[in-house]
Design a protein around this nucleic acid. Sequence first.
RNA 1: GGGCCUAUAGCUCAGAUGCGGUUAGAGCGCACGCCUGAUAAGCGUGAGGUCGGAAGUUCAACUCUUCCUAGGCCCA
Length: 928
Amino acid sequence: MDYKKTLNLPQTSFPMKANLSKREPEILAKWDESRLYDLLRKRGKGRQTYILHDGPPYANGHIHLGTALNKILKDMIIKSRQMSGLDAIYVPGWDCHGLPIEHQVDKELGERKQSMTQVEIRRHCRRYAERFIDIQRQEFKRLGVLGEWENPYLTMAYPYEASIARELGRFFSRGGVIRSKKPIYWCSSCQTALAEAEVEYHDHVSPSIYVKFPLQAEEQARYPELAVKPASVLIWTTTPWTLPANLAITLHPDFAYVAVDVGGEIWIVAEGLLESCMKAFAIQDYTVVKTFQASHLQGLKCRHPFLERDSVLILGGHVTLEAGTGCVHTAPGHGREDYDMALEYGLDVYSPVDDNGRFTRDVDFFAGQYVFDANRNVTAKLKEVGRLILEKEISHSYPHCWRCKQPVIFRATEQWFISMDKNDLRKNTLDWIERVEWIPSWGKERIRNMIANRPDWCISRQRSWGVPITVFTCKGCGELLATPEVFDHVVALFEKEGADIWFELTAQELLPPGAACTNCGGSDFEKEKDILDVWFDSGTSYAAVLEQRPYLSFPADMYLEGSDQHRGWFHSSLLAAVGTRGMAPYRSVLTHGFVVDGQGYKMSKSLGNVIAPGEIIDKYGAEILRLWVAAEDYRDDIRISPDILKRLSEAYRRIRNTTRFLLGNLNDFDPHRHAVPYEQMEELDRFALHQLQDLVKKIRSAYDRFEFHRVYHALHNYCVVDLSAFYLDILKDRLYISSAASKVRRSAQTVLYEIVTALLKLMAPVLSFTAEEAWLYLPGSRGESVHLEDFPEENPALRDAELNDRWQTILALRSDVSRALEAARQTKIIGHPLDAKVSVALPESVQQMLNGSEELLRSVFIVSQVELRSAAELSGGVEGVEVVGAKIEVSVATGEKCERCWVHSESVGTFKEDATLCDRCHNILNPA
RNA sequence: GGGCCUAUAGCUCAGAUGCGGUUAGAGCGCACGCCUGAUAAGCGUGAGGUCGGAAGUUCAACUCUUCCUAGGCCCA
C-alpha cells in the first residue's frame, strides 16, 4: 500500500516561482481597478493624518535608481504609517519649470526658436514637461508606489503658478525682497545671461600679464624696510579688461608674503610663489627684505595702476599657489569669488560693461570698447604707465556660450534677492532648525551651517520657462510697484490663465485699473523681465499643495529626500515658510544617501557602472528593487551590484517559499471552524506564538523608526531560523502524520494561520506585491487587500515567559544534539536523523525541567527515540556546548522504520493488517 | 580647499537608553554532508573578521581624541 496517500502533505496553488516581472503588472491592474488608493483613504477616514509631503522630481528624463529609491522609501513609510493606524495621505508632485527643460526644448527647436515668441517657447516647455510627467508617473506606479496619481501637484498648473506669485507677494509686502547686483555669465554676442549649465569650457588663448599695484606712500611708511624704495603688490591676470573694475587684491589668510628688493624697487608676492615669479621675470638678483603674515597686510591700500582709485588688500581662502603671485586681482563685478569677497568686505559690485560687452561711458581710456578688444589696450596702457612687468599668452580652459560658441564674460547685473537679514530671516530660520526633527540627526548640523553662512537668496533668472517676478517699475521715476493690490490682481489672472498671461499682456493690461506710482503718481509702467528661481517654485509647495488641498494641512509631518536637498528643497522650503509663515513647513526631515555601485563609487556613464531601474524590474521584478531599498541602511550611501541583487532575490525566494509552505499546510484549515483555543494548544505551538510576538514587536518598532533594514533582517531571519529550520521542520511530523482533523494538527494550523497572517501584514509595506498575492490564498474570510489591513498588535496574552525559558533551554540542547547527530553522520552511523536514537544525560537543573519530556524532545530533535539517562550510563558521547554539562550519545534507533511516518519503532511489524506500520500510524489509520 | 557623513567577516546588517570592561554576533553566500513526503525545495556541520590605517588617552577601545587613507553629498 502507498501510505503517502494517507498523509496530509502541503498543497497550494500559490506558486513557488514568483515570475514577478509578469505578475506585478497584473497586481497593479487589480489595484487600479479596485481603486485601492481611494479605499485606503476611506479606511483612514477619521484617523489622525500623516502627511509625507512629496518633494517634486524634475519632469525631465526617465527615473533612475535614485528617484526609485526615494519613491519606494516614501511608499514604505506611507504604507507602514497607514497600517499603524494613521491616515497616511500621499500626493505626488512634479517640478516643471526651469532651465533643463528650456534647454532641452531649445535643442529640439534649434534655429526655429529665434523667430518664436516667449509664449510659444513656453508652450513647448509645458508640453515637454507633460510628456515626462506621464512617463515618470508610469515608472513610479510600476514600482508599486500607491498615491494620488490621477491628481498630482504640478508646479506649472495654473493655481500653482498663482500660488507662487502670491507667496512672492508675501515676501515683497514684508520688505523681504531687495534688488542688488550680482555677476552672472553673459554672452555678449547673444546678449543673454547664461546659466552654469549653458556654459561649455573650451581652450582659449588669453593674455597673461603681471601687473604692479603700487603701495600707497603712507602705508609704505609703516614698514621701514619698505620705505626706501617704491613698493608694489604684484598681481597676475588673464583678463586685463577686468582691471578697470579692480577694487581689491585678495591674499590668502594663511600664506606668508614676502617683500623682495629687485634692485630699483620692492615687490610683494606670496612666499610660495616667489621663485616661480622671479624665474618668469628672469630676475636672478633679489633679496627678501621682509616676510609678512597675510593678516598684517589686510586693509593696506594700493593705488590702481592707471586710475585715480585705491585697491585694498583683503583676505580670501580661494587664493591658491598654483599660479600667479598669490595676490589676486579682485573685480567684484566680474567674478564669482570676487563677488563673494565684495559681500564680505562691503565693496561695490562694480561692472562697467553693457549688454554688448562694451565698456560704459564712465570708464576712462576705454569707454565704448568691446572688452575682448580692450585687452590689448589695457596692456598698452599698463606699459605706458610703467606698471606692466611681463606679458605672455596662455592657452587655458575658458567658458564659452553653448549656443554661439563665443567666449563669455562675467558681468554683474541687477537681480532680485530675498534678504537673509530683513525680518531676521536668518536668525528665525536657525531657530526653527532646532525645532525640527532631523533624521539622521546630523542633518541639523548640515543645514544649520548652510543657513548660517549663505548669502542672500538670488531669486532672479534671466530665462523664459518659469513664473515671472510679478512687479512693475514706473517709467517716469523708476520707482518699484509691488503692492499687495498689484500682486492680488496678477495672482487672480494667473489662476485663470496661468503665468503665460504675463508674457501675453502689456504692463498696463496686467495692472489693476487705476494703478499709479506711489512716488510720482505716474501710470506708465514696465513689467519685470526676470523669472523666479525654480527653487522658489518647489520651495513654496506647502502653500500650493498643503494649504490648498482641504484634506492636507500645514506643516507636513515629514519631508523625505536625498541628502543633497539640504541645499535644495529642504533649504528653500524652510526659508520660504519661515519668511512668510514664521515657521518651518515640516515637523521632521528624513534624508537618505546616494546610490553607489558595489565598490562604493558613484554611478557614472564614464565608469560604466550605471544600472537602470528598468533592467532590474525586467530581470527580477520591482519587488526585488523594493527589497533592496528596505535591506540597505539608507542613512549611508546605498550600494547596488549584480551580486547584491542576486543575494536579495535569493532571500526573496526564501521568504516566498516559507510563505508558500505555510499556505500549503493551511489548505484544509478554516480558522473559524478549526481554530484551537490557546490553552488547549501544544506547548511548542504556544512557544511559536511567543516568538511571533517578538517578531511583531521588533518589526513594528523598526517601522516606527523608519529602520527598514531591520524590518528586512527580522523578516528574513524569522523565516529562516525560527520557522524553516525550527518550528516548521519539527511540525512536519505532526502536520503530515496526524489525522487531518486531529486536535494536535489543528493546534499547529491555528498557529500557522496566525503566523502567515501576521507575516503578510508585516511584509506588506516592503513586499507589497507578494504580500498582496499571497493574501488571496489565505483561508477563511479576509479583507480585499492586505494594504487595507492594520499591522498585528503585539499581544501580551500570547507571551509566556516561563515557557520561553524552558524552550530556550530546549533550543540550546537541540543545537548540541544536532552537532552530535552530525558527528554520527560523518562516521556513517546514521544518515537521516530518524535513523537515530539519542541518549542524553543532563545537568541537574535541566534534568528536572525536562524530566518526562522524552516524546517532546524526540519530536523536537526529529529523531526516532530519545532517552534521558544519567552521565554514568553513557559510555561515550559528545559534550554539550550550549548546555554545559550535558552529554549526548547517538546510536542506531531500535526497531524497524515505519513505512508511513519513517520513525523507527519496535512496534513496527506487530500489526497483522499494517505489517510495516508503527503503533501510532496504525491507530491513526484505524480509528477506534 | 571648506561643511556634513561613512568605513565591523565575500555580501547585507547587529553590536543595549548617543558619556569605553569577559573569547566581536546574525543571516546570506561558500565548503562538506544529509534528505528526496516544502523538491528548480528542505535540514545539519564547518571555515571566514589584527572591527579602513597610524598614533594617543586609559588598568582597559570596535566603542573616546588626533592625524592619514578611501568613498559619498553639498559648496568653493
